[in-house]
């Protein structure tokens, strides 16, 4: 069963096309990731889904309710966490939570079991003004406030941007527990490593969807043999590899270079020999499986080539 259905949605701001003919189905109780760079159109899609923006074209439903016609009903069953921290900074942690529980006509106690895991972590700070919390704490509070009315669908727009790695990991732990409670979660993120934590993801680029699938199957779409290469001089390594005739694409990933080659026949030895001839020392070459980021780059390149 589909919790969120998006059919051929388009949206433009003047001449700028933000979304181009987008269709996505999100199943009930899954964590669905929208992966894309800044400006890819993720937030626009969110605004349409949470009934803040009208699409130019197309149709979207949440729990079979139309986002345009049934917006009031949708607002009751939707939990939304905007990309920007949008709680009252001058109110205390407790006052914020109490306020959001009250405007949905409920109380904190009614749905306490849903937020309990998260709430116990911020409870020691409940009298502190929300504006004085750390980034990770703010996210937890925002999540609590989005959950306090027991929504069935949760929309999280870049919840982990600007949050430290430990808090990010904790945050994803919480999402996994929410999933067990049958809550559908739509989450957007610019971090590729977070994509692997989703049940399914959509790769979005310049308002179009490049791929929708489970993270694993998306990486299988890569289809090329991939090497991870380390050398002492990263810059020269990158330059030399771009000159290599078997090179399909190569990008630096931290301290390493990921190199995709044209032919499956290219071996570690071939590469090592080539690099040795170029004068590189202490070269480590490994065959690796493509990650989501490799796939994203590859798909992005393909779509750019098609356009030009």
């Amino acid at each position: 069963m589909n919790s969120i259905q998006i059919e051929n949605i388009s949206k433009s701001y003047g001449n700028i096309v933000a979304l181009k003919d987008i269709s996505i189905n999100v199943h009930k109780g899954e964590i669905f990731g929208l992966i894309g760079a800044d400006g890819a159109g993720k937030s626009t899609l969110f605004d349409i889904l949470v009934t803040l923006l009208l699409p130019d074209k197309g149709k979207a439903t949440i729990e079979n309710l139309d986002v345009v016609k049934d917006y009031l009903k949708i607002r009751k069953l939707l939990g939304y966490m905007p990309g920007k921290f949008s709680l009252y900074q001058d109110l205390s942690v407790y006052e914020n939570l109490d306020f959001f529980a009250s405007i949905f006509g409920g109380t904190i106690e009614e749905n306490y079991d849903l937020i309990k895991d998260i709430w116990v972590q911020i409870e020691p700070f409940q009298t502190r003004p929300a504006g004085k919390l750390s980034g990770g704490m703010k996210q937890k509070l925002a999540l609590c406030c989005a959950l306090v009315h027991k929504p069935t669908v949760l929309c999280l727009d870049e919840p982990t941007t600007g949050v430290d790695p430990v808090s990010r990991k904790e945050f994803w732990g919480m999402l996994k527990r929410l999933k067990e409670k049958e809550i559908t979660i739509l989450i957007s993120t610019p971090y590729m490593d977070e994509a692997m934590l989703c049940d399914r993801v959509a790769l979005i680029q310049q308002g179009t969807i490049m791929a929708i699938d489970t993270p694993l199957r998306i990486t299988e779409k890569f289809g090329k043999k991939l090497f991870s290469i380390h050398s002492e001089n990263l810059y020269r390594l990158l330059k030399d590899l771009r000159m290599y005739e078997e090179t399909h694409s190569c990008y630096s990933f931290g301290q390493d270079v990921h190199l995709a080659v044209k032919s499956q026949a290219t071996s570690k030895n071939d590469l090592a020999q080539y690099l040795f001839s170029k004068g590189h020392e202490n070269v480590i070459v490994k065959i690796i499986n493509a990650g989501i980021e490799d796939t994203f780059m590859e798909l992005m390149n393909n779509s750019l080539k098609v356009e030009s």
């Binding site: 009934t51 949008s86 709680l87 959001f100 405007i103």
Partner: peptide, 13 residues
Amino acid sequence: EIGTIEQLNVTPI
């Protein structure tokens, strides 16, 4: 300005 209106707008108020 602070953006809280966005959070209010998605509630059934």
